[in-house]
Nucleic acid binder design. Structure first.
Lengths: 234, 234
DNA sequence: ATCGTCGTGCTAGTATACAAGTATGAATAT
DNA sequence: ATATTCATACTTGTATACTAGCACGACGAT
């Protein structure tokens, strides 16, 4: 185990150690700093973050619920492999729900909500041109969250997140590999335009296709890092 | 706080105290033994279950994620009010996803899967006639889980569960009040029949209506227990 | 050389003690 | 009678110590 390379942002003074360690660990797992199969232990993480085991245990419990770690009592804990079965289900779920939400959004959301989406897109475009892919990644996620929020579906987005962690790892790998960066942003622009023009059918189709594209072009990832995956069978 | 009336099933020897306490607390909250607004504390629960605070803390963390308790640091923890906003989102999500899953199921699932659904229905009907509403409640939930499982969507069902706790409390209240018990079971029969006959459109419509009916006839609950709810505005 | 035994060190699960902040109510001053 | 102060008890957050079980390697018997 090798936690020196952990990316550690500063801790907000208001947040508890438990919240902080969850934020950091989740981020490091999704960004493949902690690699699938790597071993972690409550003790070493606690030491790396300069805390005791108690708040780390809470964090492990949440990460296990996310499917990001596998806890084997009395044996050890490991960063989970990316489960393609889970990814497939996550894509099905997102495609279904985001289409339904697009139907609501295209029926009409407030001008302010549209502005927020456009402002987010503006930042995405800017960061992409500057090569700040980490920021693009987070803005992408945030844009979808904004859409659910605009439709009063915050909790539905939370539910999606609860099984989307593996999809995030794939999305991050693809972004790192330079796969489908520009196209993705272009699709975002089209989606926002459909919302503005209240073009329901086009918007739904765009969103359905957009989400489904997550598991396109993943073969190249599998070739490079076959040991990151499980339940691959395509 | 008044934990004498907690229903405590025996603990499986294999499960940890953390898992056991989560199972018991969740059950007692959903069955309104612990009432919305009631105060609970890590200490008193630990004492009631004869354990220390550590595993109870994990349980509290999970219950908070489910939206079943509200933790106020240094002040106290309370059984959360039933959030009608969350219920509304949960119904939207279930209606959308269960329809999509029905589309898969009606396209053809194995004979064995259909048998399991029918066996479950048979038990539902039996228990209902015997007045065993607690069992009916659990078989109802199980039936929907079986359907997702038959379509290879176990994780999607898990995601639904992650925001469905409040809906469960409502469903339980309705069942206790004798609201729409028989109709619900009749609908289950129709749904299974549609699957067997591979009648996609009828199956989807039945399921959509079935799920949406959760927030029908809830006014009577609100009249009886207005203090159980928040974000009521209908 | 191979197999089995046992000890050592690691793991996660649990118990307990302490820290820091909040609500409450009694005591006191006005 | 009312307002203020302050001690106290209770809350969750954190740290630490202990328990039980597994992996692994050294060592010895065969």
């Amino acid at each position: 185990m090798d936690l020196e390379k952990l990316i550690l942002e500063p801790k907000y003074s208001s947040e508890t150690i438990g919240d902080y360690s969850y934020r950091m660990l989740r981020r490091n797992i999704i960004c493949i700093i902690l690699k699938p199969g790597d071993s972690v232990s409550e003790n070493t993480v606690a030491a790396a973050l300069g805390s005791s085991r108690t708040p780390i245990r809470e964090t492990f419990s949440k990460l296990a619920a996310d499917g990001l770690i596998d806890v084997h009592p009395q044996r050890g804990t490991y960063i989970s492999l990316i489960d393609m079965k889970r990814v497939k289900e996550s894509v099905f779920m997102r495609a279904t729900l985001e289409e339904a939400v697009m139907r609501v959004a295209c029926a009409g959301i407030s001008e302010d909500q549209i502005f927020r989406l456009e402002a987010n897109f503006n930042q995405q475009s800017f960061c992409f041109n500057k090569g700040k892919m980490q920021e693009v990644f987070e803005l992408d996620n945030k844009m979808h969250e904004l859409l659910f929020e605009a439709c009063g579906m915050e909790h539905v987005w939370q539910a999606i997140l609860s099984i989307a962690a593996d999809s995030y790892r794939i999305r991050y790998l693809k972004l790192s590999a330079g796969v489908r960066g520009e196209e993705t942003i272009a699709e975002h622009l089209e989606i926002i335009r459909a919302i503005r023009e209240q073009d329901v059918e086009r918007g739904c189709r765009l969103m359905r296709d957009h989400v489904a594209k997550l598991d396109e072009d993943v073969e190249v990832l599998h070739r490079q890092h076959a040991d990151y995956f499980k339940n691959w069978e395509r």
